[in-house]
Write a protein that binds this DNA or RNA. Structure first.
Lengths: 237, 237
DNA sequence: AAGTGGTCTAGACCACTGA
DNA sequence: CAGTGGTCTAGACCACTTG
């Protein structure tokens, strides 16, 4: 017996899509109970295992949930969780490194990186331009360990995930982000060449490793010309 | 034979966690090939099916990927996709409805909802306060169909997902969001009682149904006192 | 007790890869 | 060709829910 049916997809995919259609079309609504695994297996002339594969997929997508001893139910949709892409790549922009300094951290940086005032920090400034006009400023701070020299690698990898990768396992990190609106400091206004009352979209990021150590802190100041951040929620069809 | 081992978890979970540890600890790195399903089945004294269940989990989490005919490989971590919660609930704030109007849409609203100038629109204003001080303003626009009367339901459900739910299937929608920084209009400054040069974090949202129809448009203006938006990326442990 | 989902087995055949 | 992952079967026993 072939595993691929006439529609060119495996049977478990057919079952998945049939159920997905029923849910997305409104034929079934949140809280409704689905057919049992045995009923579906009989309906599609297949084994329980194959039906379960479909159910696992739907459950992982958040369309249904299971309740042992009772059955599967249509889930409540989540419409308040958004995905946002915040790439370092800056496609369509020109990026230049302004400076790389070793500095004493101010209080904001000490607090973000959870370090003392005497722990030195590497500061990396990037200016993002469109048609030679600065539209954003990106500043990153990395604790500077005296023992380990500042590697070229680290500076060329002035992108947090890759700095991280150079030091330890790349899956052992997560990033926390805060987005707010603010006014530029004098220094930022100077670099960006904008007035002091220009509203800036500002993104703060802290890179945290598996042991809850702060290994990087970044701030990105964006002028309106940089464009908005885009996000979306919901389900794919 | 019991399905739960001494550690109180099913075998497939043990396998999953063992592999996850190897990846997150840096013992294995992106691009490395994992043991084959048959090798793992032998190593854990179990069947290929159980091993596959573990692999599916890890693949779904984005830690590994499979290549038919070759094997499983540790994936490149994604550190530029963030999850952001943007709830309507406004926990910790006081919310009051200021007005509900039926209006003629201006050009911005026409463009967002993809409607003509003569299609009427319902406008709903919410003011969000902390300790009696306005910290955010939320405006929503919904196309007003002459045929269907404005239901009380719709006004009390002045939350997009639920308006949607009242009309059709709740899984048939997605939301697109833009986040930017800007200055208030006179009207917004008036309602929020803020100066004209206060930087506002502004979130625009469009609710889109399965047929690509725009069914709602919302704008939320947030003063610095409202607090930042928070997001995170990375893997759970 | 009957029905549900959760875990697991020991096979089968297929499509794909690389030597 | 042998080895890999992809699909699928026809069972088994378990834990849980409901009547």
């Amino acid at each position: 017996m072939s595993n691929i049916n006439r529609s060119g997809e495996p049977l478990y995919m057919t079952i998945t899509n049939d159920l997905k259609s029923a849910i997305c079309s409104g034929e079934m609504n949140p809280g409704d109970m689905l057919q049992s695994e045995n009923e579906l297996a009989a309906r599609y002339g297949t084994s329980r295992t194959t039906v379960r594969k479909s159910m696992q997929l739907l459950e992982h997508e958040g369309l249904i949930y299971s309740w042992q001893g009772k059955g599967y139910f249509v889930a409540q949709p989540v419409h308040d969780t958004f995905s946002i892409h915040f790439s370092e790549e800056e496609r369509g922009f020109d990026v230049s490194y302004r400076k790389v300094n070793v500095i004493m951290p101010d209080e904001e940086i000490q607090s973000a990186l959870q370090i003392g005032p005497r722990q030195m920090v590497i500061e990396i400034l990037r200016i993002i331009r469109r048609r030679d006009v600065p539209v954003a400023l990106d500043v990153k701070y990395i604790p500077y360990d005296k023992g380990t020299p500042v590697l070229e690698k680290e500076l060329s990898y002035a992108v947090f995930p890759e700095i991280a990768a150079a030091k330890t396992a790349p899956f052992a990190f997560h990033t926390e982000m805060q987005i707010s609106a603010g006014l530029p400091t004098e220094r930022v206004a100077g670099v960006l060449g904008c007035p002091m009352d220009a509203p800036l979209l500002t993104v703060y990021r802290i890179l945290i490793d598996q042991n809850d150590r702060r290994v990087g802190y970044g701030i990105k100041y964006m002028l309106p010309d940089y464009g908005p951040l885009c996000a979306r929620s919901g389900y794919e069809f």
